[in-house]
């Protein structure tokens, strides 16, 4: 069976990135998943077992002192050697900041092409076909690579399900540290608050707040509704620019794209740039005091009203029903 390489990211603290599940699931639909992992110390048995559970049939463990101190280059070196070793039909990385830089450099180095921000993959008589959701979901586009190795960056949270579990066979290699033309990592600064809420990209329900919240103090209303619904928190760019919430919560053209079962927009006017990040949600609810707000054009259920009176009542009603 044809090999499919996946670049599995490991945090500087050693944890396997959440993107691993989707990458291995996508790889399993195309062939035999090989997990390529770069680390400073040989992989622990637990990590190998975990990658097997997620579907990795083989683990290519590249050990190098440069992991954690040189940006992206060790991953490109490891992938390029794994391409020689496994002759894969495709290479998959997360569409993360590290993943897409590794994909881009690899494609140039080995003579392939990048298919970017892929939301679904399929094999058509051995040809790897990538599906993309373009212009905020306005178009679905399929693409292939002609004449070289397909290198796909997979949108995080887009691939559902899991690959069949396997017992991973490990191939450990040592990589020489590359220092030429390197970007050096001096320090990692972890995000302070590790939220107990679901992750924005993969949450089934997202509650987002906009400029209509009026202040960062008032943004707590978004948090309260999110917690009542077990939802992730999002925001419009206006709310981020106003400093109500961190940029990592931004949903839209230049932020995260989400496709949850339920998206609730509070005090968000719904500029086209915001809709580009959420209009593929299954159900959209909008509450806004401006009845002409464009968000209502895409809302399945809209309330023209004051979020500060409607939302607390909604929280009460939801809590009453769940009791």
């Amino acid at each position: 069976m044809t090999n499919i390489l996946t670049l599995i990211e490991v945090s500087h603290r050693g944890g396997i990135a959440a993107s691993a599940r989707g990458l291995l699931a996508a790889a399993a639909t195309l062939g035999s998943p090989v997990a390529v992992v770069v680390s400073a110390a040989p992989l622990a048995d637990d990590d190998v077992a975990r990658l097997g559970e997620l579907g990795a049939v083989k683990v290519y463990s590249a050990v190098t002192a440069a992991a954690g101190s040189v940006l992206v280059a060790p991953a490109v070196d490891a992938l390029s050697r794994a391409v020689d070793a496994y002759r894969p039909a495709a290479v998959l990385t997360a569409n993360s900041v590290d993943g897409r830089e590794a994909a881009a450099r690899l494609a140039v180095r080995v003579g392939g092409s990048v298919l970017a921000d892929v939301v679904r993959v399929r094999s058509d008589n051995g040809t790897v076909v990538a599906q993309h959701s373009v212009f905020g979901g306005a178009y679905t586009v399929e693409s292939v690579v002609e004449g070289g190795l397909p290198v796909l960056t997979i949108r995080q949270g887009a691939i559902e399900g899991e690959a069949p579990a396997a017992t991973a066979e490990v191939d450990t290699v040592s990589l020489e540290a590359t220092t030429d033309a390197a970007t050096v990592i001096d320090q990692f600064n972890d995000d302070v608050a590790v939220s107990v809420r679901p992750e924005l990209r993969t949450a089934a329900t997202v509650v987002s707040g906009g400029r209509g919240l009026g202040s960062s103090e008032n943004f707590v209303l978004v948090e309260q509704l999110a917690d009542a619904l077990g939802a992730a928190i999002g925001a419009s760019r206006a709310a981020v620019d106003a400093g109500y919430i961190a940029q990592t919560a931004q949903v839209g053209q230049t932020g995260v794209s989400v496709s949850p079962q339920l998206y609730i927009a509070l005090g968000i006017s719904g500029a086209i740039q915001h809709r580009a990040g959420m209009q593929t949600a299954k159900t959209i609810v909008a509450i806004n005091k401006d009845e002409d707000a464009p968000i209502f054009e895409v809302a399945d259920f809209g309330i023209v009203g004051d979020i500060f009176t409607v939302v607390p009542k909604l929280i009460e009603a939801v809590k009453a029903r769940s009791n």
Binding site: A107, L115, V129, A138, Y139, S143, E146, G148, Q279, A299
Partner: peptide, 16 residues
């Protein structure tokens, strides 16, 4: 090597 688009489908607009 090059990437090639093989199909394009427009999503129906959402109805309010």
């Amino acid at each position: 090597s090059r990437s090639v688009v093989i199909s394009t489908a427009e999503r129906p607009p959402r109805a309010a």
